[in-house]
Simulated scan of single mutants.
Amino acid sequence: MELALLYSGGKDSSLAALILDSFYDVTLVTAHFGLTEDFEHGKAAADALGFPFDMVELDRDVAEEAVERMLEDGYPRNGIQRVHEHALEVVAERDVEAIADGSRRDDRVPTVSRATAQSLEDRHEIDYLAPLSGFGRHAVDRLVEQELDVETGPSEEISRADYEGELRELIRSNHGEEAIKTVFPDHDQTIVRGRA
């Protein structure tokens, strides 16, 4: 069965791929707005793990809407949530039996509610899977340490193929560097370099 997994190149989506690989023909799919070349980091991580890789382009209007929402809110949650839901919709239009992401039980964003998951499944006649939804951060970290070679660092220093990098670039180009600091708190990101 064909499955498209939304892929950032980070530890969570990479671990999700490893879990699903026993049951599905997994393709790692990076969703992007065409604002940066960050999708290349997703491709490199997918290649290092030995998974097929593909990309889908998202609607630039959704990025603009997300950035305005984040600037208005003063934090990224609602904007990133909007982008993730849009990405799931776009990936659900692929010719696959299932779609998935790397969301964990304790993620603040993005999350997929039961109603959203059921709606995706019903409207697109696919399965939506979140294989890490029962795992907390510490459990994921222990599994990742055992299975993956991961680089970790401050978000602005670790390039990967997630929504944040392109949204940061859009904020930078439209509102300046200082505006990024008003939206994104300091936090670490990961990029997978291969298997452990």
Rank of each mutant, 00 (worst) to 15 (best):
H124R: 06
Q146D: 13
E177G: 14
S133P: 13
I99G: 01
I126S: 00
D141L: 11
S119P: 08
E145K: 03
D141K: 05
L167P: 08
S103W: 03
A117W: 12
D162V: 01
V150H: 00
R114N: 07
D149V: 06
E166V: 12
Q118G: 14
T111N: 04
E151R: 06
E164L: 08
H124L: 13
H138S: 15
E156S: 13
T111E: 02
N174V: 14
F135K: 11
V140I: 04
R137T: 14
H124Y: 12
S119M: 15
A98L: 04
S155C: 15
E97G: 05
D162E: 04
L167N: 10
V109E: 10
H138F: 15
G102M: 01
L143V: 00
R142H: 15
I158P: 07
D162K: 11
G165K: 02
Y163F: 13
A92W: 00
A117V: 11
D141N: 07
E164F: 09
S119V: 07
R172T: 08
L132C: 11
R168H: 14
E169T: 10
Q146T: 06
L132R: 08
G176M: 07
E125Q: 10
L143D: 02
D141P: 09
H138D: 13
E145A: 15
A139L: 06
L167G: 02
R172C: 05
N174Q: 09
L129A: 04
L129F: 03
R123N: 11
D162I: 09
G165I: 05
L170I: 00
P154V: 04
L129N: 00
I171M: 01
D122T: 07
V150Y: 02
E145G: 10
P131Y: 03
D127C: 05
L120E: 02
A92S: 10
A100S: 09
